[in-house]
Simulated assay, not measured.
Amino acid sequence: MDKRTSLSEAVAEHIRDGQLVAIEGFGHLVPVAAAHEIIRQGFRDLTLARMTGDVMIDQLLAAGCLKGVIGSFVGNSSAGSLHELRRRVENSDPVPLDLEEYSHGGMVCRYLAGASKLPFYPINSYRGSDLVALNGKIRSVKDPYGGEEIHVVPALNPDVTIIHAQRADRAGNIQAWGILGVQAEAAFAARRVIVTVEEIVDDGVIRSDPNRTIVPSHVVDAVVHCPRGAHPHSVQGYYDRDDGFSRRWSELARDPRRLRDWLQENIHGTRDHAEYIARLGPDYWDRLQVEAAFSVPVNYGGRK
């Protein structure tokens, strides 16, 4: 089945107000373009699940899309704080935010439980942690094999999971490399899956390197060709992280009015991600280019 579609069509078809939406990618392969499309289409009352919250959280909050965040880290890469999020959490300005906090390990376990169709997942690292007192969803159960009680976290089953990757075929077999996070677990845990990719390649390319497939087509509902869809984050082998953007954001987001003006100009004021990227200019990407570093070929040869 051909699952190729545009980003606007994928978001409009699969996302609804009030849903739990996971947007995952760790360090790189972050589906920022999809978050921008959610803003363009004006969705409301979403709960965002994301292990490593970043600039997109400030943007989604300022746009009025989110009522809650489930995660384990928030920050603007190495450039500072997320000031819109801080205003919500510290001062309920302009409204409070429902923030449900876990460790990285806790979020991984929640996705694992969801992907495995289990009600909860055990985790050993919460002994002595203040998170247990702060988060009532972290509970403990008796070890049926006679050991000590162990903490557990509930399954996380997003209504929609969105991830970004290097490439896919038309059917939605998704291939990625470099640092990976919980993209596969978040996809298998979700009811619907949207994937944006740098390239859509011929079926034979995917078949020639099957072990690089992190999410198979039967899990994916929509695959979107979205070059530079992770900016300002990096994509291994395609472009580097835009640290300059992150530093500028750290200053811009201190002022709520400047932040909303940025949203109006760059997201609401653009038709799609391609126009957003075009506004940066053709020379913008020169400093984000990466050198080629090819892996050694793998022989998948089989029986004659």
Rank of each mutant, 00 (worst) to 15 (best):
V182F: 07
Q166D: 10
A165W: 00
Q166I: 04
E185D: 14
E198W: 03
A190N: 04
D203P: 05
A186D: 07
I138G: 07
V201L: 11
K137H: 13
G136Y: 00
D203Q: 12
I214G: 05
N211R: 12
I179P: 13
V141G: 05
V160K: 04
R191G: 10
T196F: 02
A133P: 01
I174N: 02
R192C: 00
V152H: 03
A165C: 06
E185A: 10
F188V: 12
E199A: 06
P144Y: 00
I138M: 11
A176N: 07
R167C: 03
G136E: 14
G146Y: 06
P158H: 05
R167L: 04
V193W: 00
G147Y: 12
E149P: 08
P210T: 08
V195A: 14
K137T: 14
I162F: 05
I150C: 07
A189Y: 08
I150R: 12
Q183F: 02
E199W: 01
F188S: 06
A165H: 03
I194W: 04
E185G: 03
G204Y: 05
V195L: 04
Q166P: 05
A168E: 02
G204F: 05
Q175L: 09
A155C: 13
R167A: 01
N173F: 10
P154D: 14
Y145H: 15
V141S: 08
P154A: 05
